[in-house]
Nucleic acid binder design. Structure first.
Lengths: 355, 355
DNA sequence: TTGAAAGCGGTACCAA
DNA sequence: TTGGTACCGCTTTCAA
């Protein structure tokens, strides 16, 4: 039934196993296993022989088998609403970088911004017994997180958080995002600042709040209609930014500065302004958020708020790893990163026109 | 040692197992297993009871255990050079969509365009016993693919291929990419067409070849210096496109059309041209490749060649699944998609200026 | 220093 | 229709 290095199995051929190495060398499987994991109680001679044979046969331990007995899969699950969104792609990259070093694999799934799909993906990943989950959630309720907790799987939320939920979180301080952006527009002389806001998520709500507070603090007015809703769903984002901006352009008085929920919306807004024959930033200054890589290559390079996506990924990875290590449940940790202003032409006024 | 539904284990708490359900119901584990997999030889009554209890306990089969015995992990590995590149992100999305429906998970890793790192990632994924691998390779040699073949793991190359390797491949026909782009420039009246080429990969070489052939076929000249090398590595791409274009601008006669290896390079080229006080497309027409989502939002909306990234992902997923199903090795399949022209302002000449 | 035995959570095979 | 038994590849425990 068993040939020298291969086992017939399900009509197919299998990889080298410890058993094969042990048989070849006349030692036990346990010995091989110990060598593999650098156990101390193995004689140098035996260790050498085993290692040599492992190389020869190009042995790779079956991680599924190991997972079964250790209870650890060395895999971490990541769920994002949209992989194509550069923000999440960069987060994934940051995560991946840290995890790779520690020998962890990353199972990624995209929820397409659909709560139900996200629920399914969570179940899938839990069934795979990932050691931890990292989620940028599209949920409206916290129910799914309860199920994760039931499984005792540690999880870290990123980017978006939930009011009633005491969970680990890594993300940018969204209220500060709104504040920094608005503050910047005020600083360059804008008097009538509008906001194209995002959907009912913690990110959009936080930015909106930061915008409001800053205006209030400076005693600036928020005329009715100065806050318009944009859609952030990837493909539609720039189109909806365009529509939202056209709406703002019809107002009287017209805004002289716009803070957009994200960069795609900002791009759409830019397009609408230029199309209307107005100048950016002279007539209307525009600032986005996310600082996507190509923001500088636009018709008018777009100022933005950097969310340090890669850092979010790295911090989330480290937090997840520490949760896996720590035996007992620890108090949820919140890591808030400070947003950074990236000034480009869309808010670079050479001279501040009075009024 | 065992409580009703939980097992103390490694100082932690474990999930529900078949054993628990079997004990609760006074049936055997085998019966539970059969119900789970919809085996026919179970009485409706028993099936009901088991399913009910599964629901109650929120049972999730341990896929690691199942993998061990079936030899199938229901996971597919994806390796890309750069997750942040929209092309690969879209491929991943297309893949994910197909795989999810079939109950497969996607383990993604990024090689950062580093062959050695890619090798490690391949080993990792093989150790995890993924059922198939999908790779956009950064390798120079075909050695790593031999190792995959040794493991009898089916694999599909995407985007980039290798001359001496008979492997499954899904991608766009790069020579046709070059041809379509060049043909388009000729059609709008360009006479002196330059090319900012990419690195020594099948994609760049194919596009270069398509460019050359098309010029030759039309009897157009390729003056020395009309082919410049751009770097495609993500962050640097637009900067290198900028540099390359500046080089082209110094030539005499100056090109009146440029075909760029990819869109980021095209954006850099646009920037250089506009900065030099020239008009696009009147003085120089520009076309890129990849048709990234924001190509339309640039200073001058950039014409491009669409590579149908999502379709590549879907086709690759389906091919991989079919490879997994088919018991015996089949002849490698090559799926070449036809590139599509996406015309935007950067090549939209209102009137063709003669000469 | 080494290894026999037990078992992780499932599935396959075959007998009851 | 049901379930006993063996076993997937590896780790853990404990005795030799």
């Amino acid at each position: 039934m068993q040939s020298l290095k291969l086992t017939a199995w399900h009509n197919t051929v299998m990889a080298v196993r410890m058993k094969d190495i042990a048989r070849d060398l006349g030692v036990s499987v346990v010995t091989v296993s110990k060598v593999l994991r650098n156990h101390s109680d193995i004689s140098p001679a035996t260790r050498e022989r085993v290692l040599k044979r492992m190389k020869e046969l190009n042995y790779r331990p079956n991680l599924a088998a190991r997972a079964l007995v250790t209870g650890r899969t060395n895999m971490i699950g990541l769920i994002v609403p949209d992989l194509v969104h550069p923000f999440f792609a960069e987060v994934a990259k940051g995560l991946s970088k840290v995890l790779r070093k520690k020998g962890y694999g990353l199972v990624i799934s995209s929820s397409e911004e659909d709560p139900e799909l996200e629920q399914q993906e969570i179940d899938q990943l839990l069934a795979r017994r990932v050691d931890a989950l990292i989620i940028a959630s599209a949920q409206w309720t916290v129910e799914s997180f309860r199920r994760i907790e039931e499984m005792k799987t540690p999880y870290v939320l990123i980017d978006r958080r939930f009011a009633g939920l005491a969970a680990n979180f890594v993300g940018v301080d969204d209220e500060q995002v709104g504040a920094v952006a608005t503050e910047h527009l005020i600083e360059i002389g804008c008097q009538r600042i509008a906001h194209i806001r995002g959907p009912e998520l913690s990110t959009a709500l936080g930015r909106l709040e930061g915008y409001r507070r800053t205006l209030t603090r400076h005693g600036l007015a928020m005329p009715p209609g100065y806050i318009v809703l944009g859609k952030s769903a990837d493909d539609a984002a720039d189109a909806s930014g365009y529509q939202a901006m056209r709406q703002l352009l019809r107002l009287n008085p017209r805004p002289d500065g716009v803070f957009c929920y994200n960069d795609p919306i900002g791009m759409g807004a830019l397009k609408a302004i230029l199309e209307a024959g107005l100048r950016v930033p002279e007539d209307i200054a525009v600032i986005g958020c996310g600082n996507v890589h190509y923001a500088g290559l636009l018709r008018v390079p777009l100022s933005s708020i950097d969310q340090e996506s890669a850092t979010i990924g790295e911090r989330a990875a480290k937090l997840a790893l520490s949760l896996i290590e720590s035996k007992d449940t620890v108090r949820p940790k919140t890591i808030l990163l400070a947003p950074k202003l990236a000034v480009r032409d869309s808010t670079r006024k050479v001279a501040c026109a009075a009024k």
